[in-house]
Nucleic acid binder design. Structure first.
Lengths: 254, 254
DNA sequence: TACGGTCTGTACGCTTTCGTGCAGTAATGT
DNA sequence: ACATTACTGCACGAAAGCGTACAGACCGTA
């Protein structure tokens, strides 16, 4: 037992023991003091277990979330019940984007894939806060562009690239957003993300594992060789990262 | 010759003979008088032949365009040279969205698929105008959300739906944006839009034609039965339209 | 220690799409 | 009128993915 591999269980324990309300969310951290305290005073910290729903497709947005930990997926749900992931959001992001344009319903379902936490705010309070916080509005506008970029790149990737490349991309994107080398997700859920059969995920994951890029077992993927994994994925991962970096340097430079 | 089918040639003649500078662009039409005249005074009308490039992937945005006629495609171009369409824009839209968030480069290539025209403005003049036109800023923010919705839905559609459904969706979306029943595009270009082989387009188009939904010949598709075409496509077309409609009713209702 | 639930590996036949090449036909230009 | 270009139809084997099913491995709990 002593040298046993880390399991879901131990991750959950760590999560439960944590009392950390420190702000990790990039958008909140980037606000000037005045706006930050104005917004923070209204925020409520909330733990988000895996698979909790932050927004339902087609429904009115009740709360917005500044994600602090964990990983949220933006999913497009089809009538058949199948879903396709069109975006990923971690501590760098925000859930509730339509509100910044004056829209009130979310076109996508957004769920936590990896348990975490967020600072939460009622939609109408958020809209009010937005009016008095220009920096916040700007940051969220930029984040919206980044999510659009993600959707666009994923649209291309879904069309042109094989399952194993897409899996590698997904793992890299996830790792960027949750930190650490462990990605706690079963093949079943990965198959929903990539909109493919679980059997295909088994195959793709097997390829990556045999190449020594990852190890995984029962719902826990560990990235063993990050740089080789980057080499094994399609260009889409690098393309998104490059454009995001470019945008932020443009923004910082003025 | 008398009863000959309308060809590309006749469309081009019509285009060239037209002297119409009437504003059809929805965003401009939606502006209050003050903003509209402020913006319009700086705009320059420009004819846009098919395949003209409005923005180059990864490059700085020089001009923005309020599309007035024709059809622009937002393309994600991959290293291989293949491209995937991630969005469509006609008279309802605008090219240059990253600027509204303070970003200066376009992640996508945007080209005219169907010849048309636009009102054009230098990027820095646009940024200046934006500051004094809140309604414009809001409209563009909303349009950005709609383009994000498009990308997301297309990402799902590209993953899950067969070529002929996607082709039908594309034709419907195009028709909505250019008006009329004629869509002047060759199979070769359609294959780039749908990121598939031209041979696959031939097959899919043949299916639609045999079913009496469209006729086409040498670069000109004619929609013969709109409602049946809507029945023949996947849910994605209706899903996008429904959400857009919902958003606008939410916006109008307040 | 046994059990039930969850997760993973693998196999089968089938459909769709891919990559490619070639031939036929309509429009264009000189 | 003729050559050239552009567009379309089709055929071929190869490859990838799909839907499905089943068995084995692992875990927590009783």
């Amino acid at each position: 037992m002593a040298h046993k591999i880390i399991t879901n269980h131990s991750i959950l324990k760590f999560e439960k023991n944590s009392n950390d309300h420190t702000v990790h969310n990039s958008i909140l951290l980037g606000l000037p003091k005045r706006e930050c305290s104005a917004v923070m005073s209204k925020l409520e910290f909330e733990r988000l277990p895996a698979h909790s729903v932050l927004a339902e497709a087609g429904e009115e947005i009740e709360f917005v979330y500044f994600v602090n930990d964990g990983l949220a997926s933006v999913l497009n749900v089809l009538i058949s019940g199948k879903s396709v992931e069109v975006g990923l959001c971690g501590f760098e992001g925000f859930v509730g984007l339509p509100l910044i344009a004056g829209f009130e319903s979310s076109p996508s379902q957004i769920i936590m894939q990896v348990a975490g936490s967020a600072f939460k705010l009622a939609a109408k309070d958020f809209v009010a806060a937005l009016r008095s916080c220009p920096t916040l509005a700007k940051s969220l506008g930029q984040f919206a562009q980044e999510m659009g970029l993600q959707s666009a790149q994923i649209a291309a990737c879904n069309r042109l690239h094989a399952v194993d490349k897409r899996l590698a991309r997904w793992l890299l994107m996830s790792q960027d957003r949750i930190g650490g080398v462990l990605v706690p997700l079963t093949q079943e859920f990965l198959s929903h993300m990539l909109a493919t059969r679980r059997a295909s995920v088994t195959g793709a994951a097997g390829v990556l594992q045999k190449a020594g890029l990852i190890t995984y077992s029962r719902g826990l993927v560990k990235v063993e060789n990050r740089s080789k994994l980057e080499a094994a994925t399609c260009e889409c991962y690098a393309a998104m990262k490059r454009q995001a970096k470019k945008w932020h340097s443009e923004n910082g430079a003025r």
